[in-house]
Simulated scan of single mutants.
Amino acid sequence: MKLSRYEQETIVNYNAGEQTAILYTRDKAIMRKLDTLVADFPDKYKQTGQDEVSKTYSLPKSYVSYRKPRAVSTEQRERARQMMIAKNKAKGD
């Protein structure tokens, strides 16, 4: 079944009283990432449900994070650009 971009939602649900978060998704990219985590870390990530368009997972609530945006200075950006140019040249040789 083909879902629109709008329908490819992901919902994370948890509360203060429990240590586990529940993640429901209809986004195939998120499913692939979480399926890999379930395979690699079965003690932490578990698939708890599935239907034809969605999957549900459980994971430790502490794995849900909120981060401030990364600030990159003009100098850092230029150094990274020069480093990638050098690596690409070296790879081409």
Rank of each mutant, 00 (worst) to 15 (best):
N88E: 07
L37D: 06
Y6F: 08
E9M: 14
T25M: 02
Q19H: 08
P60L: 13
L3E: 05
E78N: 11
E78F: 10
A86L: 07
K55V: 00
A90E: 11
E18T: 14
I11T: 11
S58R: 14
Y14D: 03
N88K: 14
A39K: 11
D35L: 03
D27P: 00
G17A: 10
T36V: 10
D51C: 05
E78C: 04
K87H: 03
P60K: 15
R32N: 11
E18G: 11
K2V: 12
P60N: 11
Y63I: 09
T20I: 09
E78Y: 08
P60V: 07
I85C: 03
E18W: 10
M84C: 05
S62Q: 13
K61M: 01
M84I: 09
Y14I: 03
K61C: 00
T74N: 12
V38T: 06
Y24R: 12
V12D: 04
T25V: 00
R81Y: 13
M83F: 13
E18L: 08
K91D: 09
R70W: 13
K44P: 00
S4G: 07
V72A: 07
K89G: 05
E18Y: 15
M31W: 05
K55W: 01
G49V: 06
T74G: 09
Y63P: 02
D93P: 00
P69H: 15
T74E: 15
K55P: 00
